[in-house]
Each structure stands twice: as structure tokens, then as C-alpha cells.
Amino acid sequence: MASLRDIARRAGTSVSTVSLVLNGRPSSVRISEATRQAVLAAARELGYTPHLAARRLRAKTPARRLIVLAIAHPVDSRLSLISRIIRGMQHHLGTVQTALAQAGLETQLTVETYQPGHLHRLRGLREPLWYHGLLVTNTTPEDDAFLHTLETPLPFVVFQRVTPHNAVNADNRAAARRVAQHLLALGHQQLAVMAPETASEAHQLRVAGFLETVAASGRRAEAIIAPGTPWTDAAYHTARALFARPASQRPTALFATNDLLALGILRAARESGVRVPDDLAVVGFDDAEFAQYTVPALTTVHLPIEEMAARATAILLDLIQQRATPPVQVEFPTRLVVRESCGGARQSDRPATTDALSLGRPEAHITLF
């Protein structure tokens, strides 16, 4: 097994420089691009594997090759999502374990964190040294722009984004249209959609699909931005301000672009004396594990995260073993899970208003469409 000293000798540099390059973390020491490339080339030529667990495994089972799959996940992202992604990836790896073993392969799953908007600093992203395949999740618009121009030999799959690269996605716009159609069919005249202030591409598509469908029906739709984090807290405070309006100026149906927002809305409604679903229908998105246990149980769009993660894992393994030609792009269907928070058809509804309204809270920004 090649050591850092071997790589330093091959690259014509110091061991400390090799360590900084292979670590892939930001450093106050400036290393030229030529030196970095020389170190990476030497590491590849010598077959260097920096992962300690991989070294131990290879020592025990020298006849097998270890494939390390990594999940790139923002440090401030919700744990419920990453846990479902891990569960889906582990499920697929479990189903193919026998076939992989017969091919002399073993797998290991790891999580690499990054600061939102700084995916470009993720170690190993440009060179397959730390892991052999990468699933990228919860990117910001800045990260998406970086990914659009990224060129790397590392096989990677993007989760829930429209991208020219390998991707697993869901039709967020179409799913939001189904939500709007359901609420319109129940007779609602005043509808609204709530999204976080730092809305990802998926959230933006959900807002767009909802507003388009309501507008096409000739009824009124309102887009509400919930500023701040965490999302449940942001939705709670924004909804409390919303429910302080006169009853005739409030929506009767509110679509939250994820279930964490819907959770805050339900709490705010209860504390404000707004009855769900009698006074307000609430719909979420994701079908998080807690959705069926809220009071009332939350109507939401089921996003098959585990299945999407499993398919992403299969794509990564195929790319690593050169059994697929990129880009591989898969779109998953969604379904509306109707529970208690929408209620039945409305017998009558309040007349719509076209006046521009304010919540009375400067940080709770509302835009009318």
C-alpha cells in the first residue's frame, strides 16, 4: 500500500503538502494547481486509498475490492431526509450484496458534509480518491450552478434537481398541480402556497405548479414566503401573522411545499383558533414519517425518497463498473395521500378579495399573484 511519503517522492514535493492536497479541506497554506495535480496523479498511479476502513478491509480480504459510496449532505439540512436516503441506499446494497460478493466486491457507505453554497469545496469531488461514487443532496442555487459546469472523473448522481448530469428526480411541478386540483375540486376560492425563504429548485417548481393551476381555474392564489430557519419555526410565525388577518382576508386552503412547514402551520392554526380542516385545509409535501401522526393527520404528497435513493445507488454502482453511459436520468412518480387535514367539499366559501394585504410583520413577506 502506497504511503504519503511514496506519493511525495513521486510528485516531487513534501509529505505535508501531499497531506493537505489529499485531505481536500480548506487551508491557509496556498498550494499551486500544478502541485495539486501532480500529487493527485501520483496518488492515482500508486493506487493510494486514503480511507482507513478501506485499508483494514483490504488487509483482511485482499482478494476483494472495496467500493466506497458517499452522500454529500449540507451541514444544516434536515436529518429526516438524510436518514431516509441512507435507508434507501442501504436497502439496495443489501439486495445486491450476494451478487457483489460473487464479483469480488464489497461496499461501504459514508456521509460527507459541506456548507450550503460551497459544494465546490467538498473533498474528493474532482478526484475519485476518497470515495468511488457520490450522491449529491439538498444543493442550493449556487451549488446547482457549480454542478452544471462541473467536469470530474468521479461518478456522481444528483438528488432531486434538474441537471444535465446523472440524476434521480420527481416531477415537483406536476405534483403541485395535483394538490391545486384537489383543493379546487373541494370548492376552495382563496388558496395559498407557503415556501421557505431559501427555496430550492424543487420548492420553486412546487410553487409554480400550484400557482399555474389555480390561475388557470380563474381563482385567486397567493404565494407566502416563510423567512428564516428552522423551517417549522419559520412557518409557525408566518402562519400566526397570517391568521391575525380578518377571516374574510385569509385563505381557506394552504399548501406547504414540505411537511416541516405544514407542521408549523398546524400548530399556529391551533393556537390561533383556526380549525383544520373546517376553516383551513392544509396540504404538505414529502409524506414525512410524522405526517400520519399529526392532529389532524396531514394530507401530503408522497415523495418516494427511499426508492429514489435506492435507484441512485444502483446507478452509481453501474457507473463505477462502467455498465452505464452517463447521463442517466430517472424521474419518479408522486402521489397525493389524502388524510384528514383537507376535509371534504366546501358547502360555501368566502368571496375572494383582490386587495393587496400585509401581515403586519416586516419579516413575514407576502406576495400576491
Rank of each mutant, 00 (worst) to 15 (best):
P50T: 02
S32M: 02
I71D: 01
A239E: 10
T252R: 11
A364I: 09
T257V: 12
F369D: 05
E307D: 15
Q108L: 15
A199P: 03
V301R: 05
T198H: 01
V214N: 02
D279A: 03
I265E: 06
A314C: 10
L150Q: 06
R350K: 06
V162P: 04
V193P: 03
R5P: 06
N169D: 13
I366L: 10
P26L: 14
S217C: 11
V283Q: 13
A195E: 12
G284P: 01
F369L: 15
S27Q: 11
T110V: 13
D278A: 15
L303C: 11
H132F: 02
Q190T: 01
T213K: 00
P304Y: 12
L336V: 05
A195W: 00
Q292E: 13
A345Q: 13
R361E: 15
Y131M: 12
S19F: 04
A364G: 00
R30Y: 03
H51Y: 09
L66N: 04
G12W: 03
V168N: 04
R177D: 10
L260E: 15
V282Y: 04
S27F: 09
L69I: 11
V301P: 10
M308P: 00
V15H: 02
R126G: 14
P26V: 13
E331A: 13
A192C: 03
V29C: 08
L303K: 08
P304D: 14
A11C: 11
T49I: 03
R275S: 10
L119A: 07
H165C: 05
Q321P: 00
L263R: 09
R177E: 15
A226N: 13
L205M: 07
T299V: 01
H91A: 15
A174S: 11
I305L: 14
P296I: 05
V29P: 01
A297T: 07
M194W: 00
R270L: 06
F146Y: 09
N258G: 08
S83K: 02
A215F: 06
H148Y: 04
N172A: 15
L105C: 01
Q37G: 01
S3H: 00
H118W: 07
R64S: 13
A324D: 12
Y48M: 01
A167D: 00
A345G: 07
S19A: 14
F290H: 01
V18D: 07
P116C: 09
L105N: 08
R346L: 02
T313Q: 07
A288K: 09
R173D: 09
L66F: 10
N172T: 11
P362W: 05
V15L: 03
